[in-house]
Simulated assay, not measured.
Amino acid sequence: MFQVISVPEGDFFFDFVRHLTDWIKKARPAKEGVVPSLTYQVFFMKKLWTNTVPGKDSMADCIFHYYQELPKYLRGYHKCSSEEVAQLGALIYRVNFEEDKTQFPNIPKMLKDLVPQDLIRQLSPDDWKRCIVGYFNKQAGKSREEAKLMFLKIIFKWPTFGSAFFEVKQTTEPNFPEILIIAINKHGVSLIDPKAKDILITHPFTKISNWSSGNTYFHITIGNLVRGSKLLCETSMGYKMDDLLTSYISQMLTTMSKQRSSRGNSN
């Protein structure tokens, strides 16, 4: 099983890796005389997107932000128009090939790398090619870096920008689809219809009073612990949702504490 685990804030990297490998060894007892082989990969990724504004840090935009947002866009988690899709497809093409137009005939074959997977069938491959080439020509002269920034500035306008998305099966809300997409971002925890991509409701972090997770579930309580409503979800990604929610709320509480402290000092 493959898991992505964040290094806890304040931990030293190699100390964390040592603790992690020790824990795995204990959790998976090896056969006598056999040394267990443990492998891991390190991903440098942005975790909290609270203050991310495209153009503010061009290096981060080119190295981190673009490459983290692109796969989520292509998986079809965002709600967007056909016009935006064609525009973004042209920018992705430019990032991949810059001004090279010799790949135009191959666009119908590479649509899965240019267009969200659930929208590919909205137009014929040739129509997508025509739209993408049209926008490409309007962006003439733009560099790869400029194309990455333009891509980010378009999706920055969407309420789901900078989200971590999780597909879950919910068992408590009869008015919502059984299969939901949960987006965790700077706005809070959003429940999204997986077909229409509409945001059904967003629970701000200030309204979330409790949450828990396990190997097969993720639960959150909205509002008062006694009278609040619960959302129970079946998912194998509960550990990651728990970690991300904990980090966002910790950051929110730290920010609120600093604001109260600064107001107190000013008085």
Rank of each mutant, 00 (worst) to 15 (best):
Q3K: 15
S6W: 15
V7C: 01
P8W: 05
P8G: 01
D11N: 06
H19F: 05
W23E: 15
I24L: 14
A27N: 13
R28E: 08
R28W: 11
P29M: 04
P36V: 06
L38E: 10
M45T: 13
T50H: 06
T52L: 09
V53F: 05
F64Y: 13
H65M: 00
Y66R: 04
H78R: 10
E83Q: 13
E83V: 09
V85G: 00
A86W: 03
A90N: 07
L91P: 04
I92G: 04
V95E: 15
E99I: 02
P105W: 01
N106L: 14
I107F: 02
K109A: 15
M110R: 11
V115A: 10
V115I: 15
Q117A: 07
Q117T: 11
I120G: 05
R121I: 13
S124K: 09
P125V: 06
W128H: 07
F136K: 10
F136L: 14
A140V: 07
G141V: 09
M150E: 15
K157L: 11
W158L: 13
W158H: 15
A164G: 08
Q170P: 01
T171F: 10
P174L: 02
L180P: 00
A183M: 04
K197N: 10
K197R: 15
L200A: 04
I208P: 01
W211G: 01
G214Y: 06
I222C: 10
G228F: 03
L231W: 12
C233V: 02
S236I: 09
G238M: 08
L244R: 03
L245P: 10
Q251R: 10
M252W: 12
T255H: 12
N265K: 13
N267C: 05
